[in-house]
């Protein structure tokens, strides 16, 4: 047993129970979970993320310190690796896009093994990359798909996305691939934290908590969409969400229990976001080892806080050693 995952697990369970039973108990609580908390959460998210980004941006970038992951641009007949060692801004743009959209660095991942006679080998390891990629893209698709609850009429592009996402018409209502993929990938990311000893050793509560929240969000979403007894009135749900968007909040009939659990957990995730490691979403854009050009000898970078330092000048040096230099036949400035 490990307090790092037990504690956040309990917290998420309590959140589930509170939001479920309280929202069932009285309309006032529905207003709390359906209106007050979501508004506060969104405010916290926007203000928090803005603050964090500005706070990072405020710090100086004294040097360009890119990690060069390919051949440099040097002699004209040696082919440079433009994207893993980008000497131009365009190259950096591509490098960043590759990092952000397809996790380029994680794709390099290897698994180290040590044999009995201490011979080491480094094999290709793509599971973490795949798990992370599925997780993030499924999350994004799910998120975008939910915009249908906040737009009226629903844009064509969203309808198209939804029909693509639900192309596997295995049941009614159509199964949304993204939701299931999100749940599966989040579960995988959780399981590897539990079963890989090294990863377990480094994991903190703050690694498990968002995973449990996201698992809770995906699970509650799936439950209220597919489980007959828990199914909610989608029209009513949209009425509520449109009320939020248009600043005319309302609690319609036909939404209860599991719906408020879902909304509460989403709110919690939003509010937690700016204070947590989830800020890697913004941080990656500001990572100096990735977002700077590598032509550091070709174009000078200016350090805003560069200050003069005490150096040992040539004159001081010659004063120290003049006799010896003359004797050795080395040229001097002052005889």
């Amino acid at each position: 047993m490990n307090v790092h995952y037990i504690f956040p697990f309990l917290v998420v369970c309590v959140m589930f129970l509170i939001s479920y039973f309280l929202s069932e108990a009285a309309t006032g609580f529905k207003y709390l979970f359906g209106v007050v908390i979501p508004y506060l959460a969104i405010l916290t998210f926007v203000a928090g993320v803005t603050y964090r980004m500005m706070n990072w941006a405020k710090s100086a970038v004294p040097f360009r310190i890119p990690t060069t992951a390919g051949q440099q641009k040097s002699l004209p007949w040696i082919k440079p690796n433009q994207f893993d060692n980008p000497s131009s801004k365009f190259g950096v743009l591509v490098r960043m896009l590759l990092e952000i959209l397809v996790f380029r660095s994680l794709f390099r991942n290897t698994k180290f093994r040590m044999s009995e006679d201490a011979q080491s080998s480094y094999e290709m390891e793509k599971w973490l990359w795949l798990g992370a990629l599925v997780f993030h893209w499924a999350f994004l698709v799910t998120l975008v798909r939910h915009l249908r609850f906040f737009t009226e009429p629903v844009p064509q592009a969203l309808m198209l996305l939804e029909s693509l996402d639900g192309f596997m018409q295995v049941m009614l209502p159509g199964l949304m691939l993204s939701g299931v993929a999100l749940l599966a990938a989040a579960t995988y990311l959780f399981l590897r934290r539990i079963f890989l000893p090294q990863v377990k050793y480094i994991s903190l509560s703050s690694d498990y908590f968002p995973l449990f929240l996201i698992i809770g969000i995906a699970a509650s979403g799936i439950l209220m969409r597919y489980v007959p007894d828990l199914k909610i009135d989608v029209t009513a749900a949209k009425e509520l969400s449109m009320g939020l968007v248009t600043l005319r909040p309302t609690i319609p009939e036909g939404v209860d229990g599991i719906f408020f659990v879902h909304v509460f957990m989403v709110s919690a995730l939003l509010a937690y976001f700016p204070f947590s490691k989830l800020m890697h979403l913004g941080g990656i854009f500001l990572s100096p080892t990735r977002n700077t050009t590598t032509n550091t000898r070709e174009a000078r970078h200016v350090n805003p806080w560069n200050y003069p330092v005490k150096v040992h000048t040539y004159d001081e040096y010659e004063d120290d050693f003049r006799e010896k230099m003359i004797e050795a036949g080395l040229p001097v400035e002052k005889e």
Binding site: W56, S59, A60, F112, K277
Partner: peptide, 28 residues
């Protein structure tokens, strides 16, 4: 933290995915 954005960002955004864990020669 004010002088080096690298430090500020690196203090905040690690998700402890463990990709780096077995890449270090001293760990190996």
């Amino acid at each position: 933290l004010e002088r080096f954005r690298s430090i500020k960002v690196f203090m905040d955004i690690c998700v402890r995915c463990g990709a780096c864990s077995d890449k270090c020669h001293f760990f190996i």
